[in-house]
Design a protein around this nucleic acid. Sequence first.
RNA 1: GCGGGUGUAGUUCAAUGGUAGAACGGAAGCCUUCCAAGCUUCAUGUGAGGGUUCGAUUCCCUUCACCCGCUCCA
Length: 548
Amino acid sequence: MAESNKNERMEKIVSLCKRRGFVFQSSEIYGGLNGLWDYGPLGIELKRNIKNAWWADMVTSHNERIQPEGAPRSFQMTGIESSIIMHPRVWKTSGHYDLFHDLMVDCRESKRRYRYDHIKGAWVEHGEQKVFVSCITDGDAKEEITRRALQHFKLKAKYADQLTWHSEVVDLTTVPETDQVLAPDAKELGTLTEPREFNLMFETHIGAMQSDDSKAFLRPETAQGMFVNFRNVVDSSRVKVPFGIAQQGKSFRNEITPRNFTFRTREFEQMEMEFFCHPSESREWYQFWRDRRFKWYVDLGISEERLILRDHEEAELAHYSVGTADVEYAFPFCEEGEYGELEGIAHRGDFDLRSHMEGKLVREGNELVVETDGDGKPKYPGSGKDLTYHDEEAKERFVPHVIEPAAGADRTVLAFICDAFDEEEITNEKGKTETRTVMRFHPRIAPVKVGVFPLLKNKPELVAKAMEVRAMLQPYMTVFYDETGAIGRRYRRQDEVGTPFGVTIDFDTIGENGEENKDTVTLRERDSMEQRRVKIDDLLNLLLKEIM
RNA sequence: GCGGGUGUAGUUCAAUGGUAGAACGGAAGCCUUCCAAGCUUCAUGUGAGGGUUCGAUUCCCUUCACCCGCUCCA
């Protein structure tokens, strides 16, 4: 039951998005394209409002002289926009090239797919047969292999000592032929395919002639644009550490399984910020951004009971990270108690700047060291440029540490859409219950701020006055003018797209019922459906206060 | 990428081997003094390609997309 309700709600949301012009399938008239979506007229307004709210919060409305609550000190904020195609070495040095090129093997029997380097196993012999028994457990591999080997040789558990082990637990990558391999979920031997390459980065070529030398990648994240421009920003904009560089823009990942509407897509927009600070203050800054980013969603009206701030377990942390927290939302397509990630706030240490100086880094014990090839040279050398920061007051030179809040813009849009969607049971005058669909967007992100309606369209005085009001408001906000259908119908239309306010011009407005209410209008509020009379002269200020 | 399911109007759904319907929505008009009112008129569809057939939206094949489960998810 919960299952069908869960899907039903998501289906209604998807249907509304299509019907009212929030989200369309990409290239729909040609049958659509997997994992790609377009924003419609209302969708783009919503998305732009959300992006603008983020940009304002991060960059334009930041005051570098004021120390925000919870911040170790005051700080500066800047923005950039870097290119989508960057030097291919950026991705080798950053680790994405290796990370996003996975070798995968399929099991013909279990129909499962595994990362080639995730499968472990051991050569085990019994009778005349020697088999590579594999598994993908996180726990005790030896125990799991013993269990599966016993099963394979049809032995009872007490005869474990009859197994002859010919190797320690090793990676499947050490096994040249797979015909004597017992796949992790198979009963037969030799069911694994040859390893095949999966490339999560979109490839393209620079220049009209294609060759291996011309190969380039569409960025899988915007973050590297900030790291490689760190020096430029420091040199050009008089910023001092601590400061942040923000960027919004498209990224591309060739996901194996795009799923869940616009939640996981192959082309997506990110809102990322790299905050550079002194290593000694980095933990405090991490806490600050972690809490501040969570609050941003709440301030924009997302329901707090569906939003969580989840700290990663140590084992879950990326190899360079000292701490990471996710802002996650309980989407309708999530199982009970599960959430979808909107944003990750990561303490990245000096990993990124050091990588771009020295070369691709790997963890060795507790140290990050430059990964080397067979000859002891860096596998992927860095730029060799000095990306340290010199603090003139403290007379100190250091590699800044980085705090990175990285949000998915499209996921955030989807979360706000899902959160705003509401079906309200109301009883009309005839005592009949009907359903009112309302998108309860926060006024600041609502695609349309106000609807302007003449009560009747066949009364020229009403229409003329309504056009006046519209013209007055339009320079300051998105206004939707509508004169067709009964007034109630027009209200409901706007409810469904989340317009927070409706303004109706009636006979009082044009002075037909005396001077007292002349030049006043009805202001109708979306959520409560309450109406009050306000002076046209007060309207703009009143609305601006609500939508800013 | 595997398995299962689904593709009919903008949306939600009917129907059919022989001219594809409804409701809601949309447009136009009349009417209408504040919460999807009424009346009249109109527009719009079988995901794509191929096959079988006199004739295919229906049967078959391929493909594409969406949903569910696996897998994947820096």
